[in-house]
Design a protein around this nucleic acid. Sequence first.
DNA 1: ATCAAAGTATGGATCTAGTCAATACAACCA
DNA 2: TGGTTGTATTGACTAGATCCATACTTTGAT
Lengths: 154, 154
Amino acid sequence: MDLVNTTTLLRQHGVRVTAQRIAVLRAVSDQPHSTADDIDKVVRADIGTISRQAVYDALTALTDTGLLRRIQPAGSPARYENRVDDNHHHLICRTCNCMVDVDCAVGETPCLTAADDCGYEIDEAEVVYWGLCPECATTYRNESTRRKRKDRRV
Amino acid sequence: MDLVNTTTLLRQHGVRVTAQRIAVLRAVSDQPHSTADDIDKVVRADIGTISRQAVYDALTALTDTGLLRRIQPAGSPARYENRVDDNHHHLICRTCNCMVDVDCAVGETPCLTAADDCGYEIDEAEVVYWGLCPECATTYRNESTRRKRKDRRV
DNA sequence: ATCAAAGTATGGATCTAGTCAATACAACCA
DNA sequence: TGGTTGTATTGACTAGATCCATACTTTGAT
């Protein structure tokens, strides 16, 4: 995404255009699933300086206007991605916390129907698949064959 | 759940039986979706004294042995429940954060199949439905008819 | 029943992710 | 090209959770 497009995008969404916001939006686009801290580092390398607060402000503004999506998986700081217009889900590794996108198994506008909505007005179904990524699964198998696990009370 | 059953349950799971753990387990059973802080308060009222650390330790131990399940919804401290053996999901209100259980729409051992598992070994599908609970939905509708919303740049 | 080993509780320090508040600054509209 | 309004910066602050060292319990073995 080039500078002009990024600027236009911000303007279209009624967001004031600042160097910080452009840099934040581009950082997330370049590397989806980044944490605020990741983004802070990237932006700092990119435009020289930015405050931590500005990163949070920009992420909040961009999320509120629908340019970014915030993901807050259990046991991890919030992550951001720019793929906002489809209903996709995430696959997260319990060991290394790496995350990949996965399309919804159900269909177009899926998952929004709970068995019983209890009177709630549901607007989003968030699906997270937890497991082991290929690398961690391999590592785990090797380790468990190598060393015998001894029983341990908790 | 009475004292004897709770004790037996802990022992069956290879967890040492202490007053604190019994109290924690019972507190969660009595009031599912409690936060660590809620539990701390209840247990303190129940057995007189417990350290915050002991609450966390107990919750971790009970979660690790499968007696409790930890839920960590976005924007909320971790919550705990004792309904662990079925695959049920949660409905959370964006406004008041209240949470109710909801059975899985798909079936018995559901949702575990992503469209493409990317080589991951998936062991859990976590589904959270976000929306407005009946009370908050009513409140919201009243407010939005009462005051006109003005456009606001971000 | 008693004892030693191993696990657990306590209190206090510490950490991380994130928010708040005040001032300085920049974007944008007239 | 101001003037208004929103944004960035800095620094203090908070909640939630974890780490550490010491003291205390539980429990299996004697």
